[in-house]
Each structure stands twice: as structure tokens, then as C-alpha cells.
């Protein structure tokens, strides 16, 4: 009986997964549109030249990774420990993995932008360092998930690690910030953004929306995968 219900659930999930993922598709389309605008219809910044255009993907990816993906992971982790709902664990898992992708983009575009502007691929600036460590922490998180077979244990351990990571990031940021302020370093040109001209703003904010939409699409696809995978495991266990 339960088998039939599960079968049915998996079937309907599988059917919906086979259809076109419109959210994901429109996310990519929006990203493409934003890029067309970034490259051809946005003015070149006076002091930094065309390198500044990387801002539209770098800053926005950082925003998505930090304030959407990892915030969601931390919140889902906390809620999991409270409510013990497997859905929350799958949300945490999915947002960690999608967040990792966005963080990777941040870490790749950062040096690409930094080299022509700061003259160095990497600087140990507080934000960059915190992002690098977040990336390492999430890799560790996903590695740990892969090394635990028992699903309930995996969910509990992941939730604990997710929460501790959320506590750690402020400490890393604080110490690196202190490190930088107490050690005078060669002055690097920080891309300060006084007030962006309206044309740039009209590119900047839509790119936020495009990446947020892309994040939502990827998250949903990854979450669906996790749900299907667990349902299949349940069926295999039941038989």
C-alpha cells in the first residue's frame, strides 16, 4: 500500500521533472539578456575601463551566494533541528550546492577583475577571504554529506555544521578585517561606488533580478533531484 503511494509520488514527480523547467529557462534567458545589456548598452566606467563590467556578475553572484543561498542553508539547518522535516534538509543540501556554484563564480570573477584594477590576482581583503573560507566550508559540508549513509544522521550532522558555519563567518570576517587594518599594506584601489550613473544602475539591478531568478531555478531543480533520489531510495528500502 505504502509502496503504491510512493510509486505514485515518484511517477508524478518524474513526470513534472521531465517537462520544461520554465523558471530555470527564464533564469538563463534573463542572464543572457542582462549580458547583452552589459556588453553593448552600458557605458564604460571612466577609471576602470571595461574591466568594471565584471561587477555586474561578480557583485550580484556574491549577493546571491551569501544572502540567498547560505542564509537559506543556515535557516533551513536551524529549522531542521527544530522540526525534523526531511524537506528542510533537502533545501539545505540544495542551497549549499547551488551556493557553491555561485561562490565559485565569485572566486573566479574576483581575481579576473582584480588583476587589471589592483594589479594582483588576489588580495587578502576581508570579504574575499571570508568568501574563500565559505567556499572551503561548503566543500567540507558537501564532502561530509557524501560520507554518511544514514539519512537522518546525515541531516542532523549537516544541520549542526550548517549552523556552526553561520556562526563562524562573522569571526573570520572580523579577524581578517582587523588583520588588514592593523597591517598597513600597499594601497589598493578599492572600487568605490559613489553613485552609479543611471545607465549603470539600469544594468546593475536587472542583473540582480536575473541571477536571483537563475538561483531560484537551479535551487528548484536541485531540490527536485534530491526529492526524487530520496523517494527512489525509500522504494528500494521498502521492497
Amino acid at each position: 500500500m505504502t509502496d503504491r503511494i510512493q510509486h505514485h509520488g515518484v511517477d508524478s514527480l518524474a513526470t513534472s521533472a521531465r517537462g520544461t523547467d520554465w523558471i530555470l529557462l527564464s533564469g538563463f534567458a534573463a542572464l543572457a539578456a542582462v549580458y547583452v545589456r552589459v556588453i553593448w548598452f552600458t557605458p564604460i566606467e571612466a577609471s576602470q575601463g571595461s574591466a568594471q563590467k565584471i561587477l555586474y556578475v561578480h557583485a550580484t553572484s556574491a549577493f546571491v551566494a551569501l544572502y540567498l543561498a547560505f542564509a537559506l542553508m543556515a535557516v533551513a539547518s536551524a529549522l531542521y533541528l527544530w522540526l525534523r522535516d526531511e524537506t528542510l534538509d533537502r533545501v539545505a543540501e540544495s542551497s549549499a550546492e547551488v551556493g557553491l556554484a555561485f561562490t565559485t563564480v565569485v572566486l573566479i570573477t574576483g581575481p579576473l577583475w582584480g588583476k587589471p584594477i589592483w594589479g594582483a590576482w588576489w588580495t587578502w581583503d576581508a570579504r574575499l577571504t571570508a568568501t574563500l573560507f565559505l567556499w572551503l566550508l561548503i566543500l567540507g559540508y558537501l564532502l561530509m554529506r557524501g560520507a554518511i549513509d544514514d539519512r537522518a544522521m546525515r541531516a542532523r550532522f549537516s544541520a549542526v555544521l550548517g549552523l556552526l558555519t553561520a556562526l563562524l563567518i562573522p569571526f573570520i570576517h572580523l579577524t581578517v578585517y582587523l588583520f588588514r587594518t592593523m597591517h598597513p599594506m600597499p594601497i589598493v584601489l578599492k572600487p568605490s561606488q559613489p553613485s552609479m550613473p543611471p545607465e549603470m544602475q539600469w544594468t546593475f539591478f536587472p542583473s540582480f533580478l536575473a541571477l536571483t531568478l537563475l538561483f531560484a531555478g537551479l535551487l528548484r531543480a536541485r531540490y527536485r533531484y534530491a526529492t526524487l533520489r530520496d523517494a527512489v531510495l525509500d522504494m528500494e528500502n521498502a521492497s
Binding site: F133, L136, L137, G140, L143, M144, A147, I148, D149, F157, L161, L168, I172
Partner: peptide, 14 residues
């Protein structure tokens, strides 16, 4: 976990 002692430095060092 299956990684046992391999996992500890990875989780702890950050």
C-alpha cells in the same frame, strides 16, 4: 562518517 579521520581536519581547520 565513512571518511572518519580524513574528515576532521577538513571540518576543523576553517
Amino acid at each position: 562518517t565513512r571518511l572518519a579521520e580524513l574528515l576532521l581536519p577538513m571540518l576543523s581547520l576553517p
